Simulated assay, not measured.
Amino acid sequence: MPLTTNAHPESQAKTGPHSSIYHPPPEDHTHHQDHPSDKKSIPDTGWRGSPPIPSSNGGDSEKDWMSKPPYNWTPARGQDGEELFKTKYESSCWCGAVRFAFSGDPLDAKHCHCRQCQRLHGAPFQWAVIFPKTSVRLLQNNSDALHCFSTTTKHAAHHVPCKVSCNICRAPLFDEGKRTVLAYPSHYGGVPLEFQPSCHIFYGERVMEVCDGIPKWRGHKNDSELMQEMSDVVGVMPRYKRHNEEPQP
């Protein structure tokens, strides 16, 4: 099936259902963007409130959401008196007004090429690491800078799913879904190996080819077909400048 997207005219396009670079499909076939894998248990980080997963019904039903995960909450303590929430990673916005702590490693990581991510991030694709909500907590919110935007209502409100950012520097921090948080690795001050993506999703909507050898799904992971990395068709977008072209006046 021909693919209607851009390809570098000097690239060696490969035919077939997916890239010629060997990448076996991941063993887990249950994980989706907002649903943790059944094979990865959610750790007990000390949340003892109700409901077990805050805002899991979506919308704005959680009126006291700021006192629940993934925001300003106090974890329970174990028998040794220490908090069950063990911080492994921290993230902050560009100006440092908003900071979050993360316990344990992400459930998954991915690159998303959907049109909505392209427009909301002003980038070719989104890179996100996926954590359970109860593995995230707010550390700092100077000048009440925490800002939520609902892509459903198109208003600045905590209406799940929503995008969370800093109202001062405008740096995006994560997406809050019904069950998970999709955080952006560029705010961690470094990129651990555990943050490397396992796949690309919505690659059928891509605006650029990415030759990294990991699976490329046309839509959601394991819910769509695998695609090849390079297109068979040179697209109609502005063509790439060849090395032998003279600079335009």
Rank of each mutant, 00 (worst) to 15 (best):
T5Y: 13
H8T: 10
H8M: 07
P9E: 04
E10V: 08
E10M: 05
Q12T: 12
P17D: 04
H18S: 09
H18G: 02
S20Q: 13
Y22G: 03
E27N: 14
E27V: 15
H35I: 08
I42K: 00
T45S: 10
R48C: 01
G49V: 11
G49Y: 09
P51N: 02
P52G: 06
I53L: 11
S56I: 00
N57F: 11
G58K: 09
G59E: 00
G59I: 06
E62Q: 11
D64Q: 09
W65A: 14
Y71V: 01
P75H: 03
A76G: 08
R77T: 15
R77F: 09
G78D: 15
F85S: 05
K88I: 05
C93S: 08
C95G: 02
F100Q: 00
F102M: 06
G104W: 00
A109T: 02
H111W: 12
Q116D: 07
Q118H: 09
R119F: 08
L120F: 13
P124T: 04
K133D: 00
R137Y: 11
L138P: 08
L139I: 10
C148Q: 07
T151V: 15
T152C: 13
H155Y: 14
A157N: 13
H158W: 06
H158G: 01
V160L: 02
V160C: 02
V164M: 04
R170D: 07
D175P: 03
D175A: 04
L193F: 14
R206D: 00
E209A: 08
C211R: 09
E225V: 14
E225W: 09
E229A: 08
E229S: 07
D232M: 04
M237Q: 15
P249T: 14
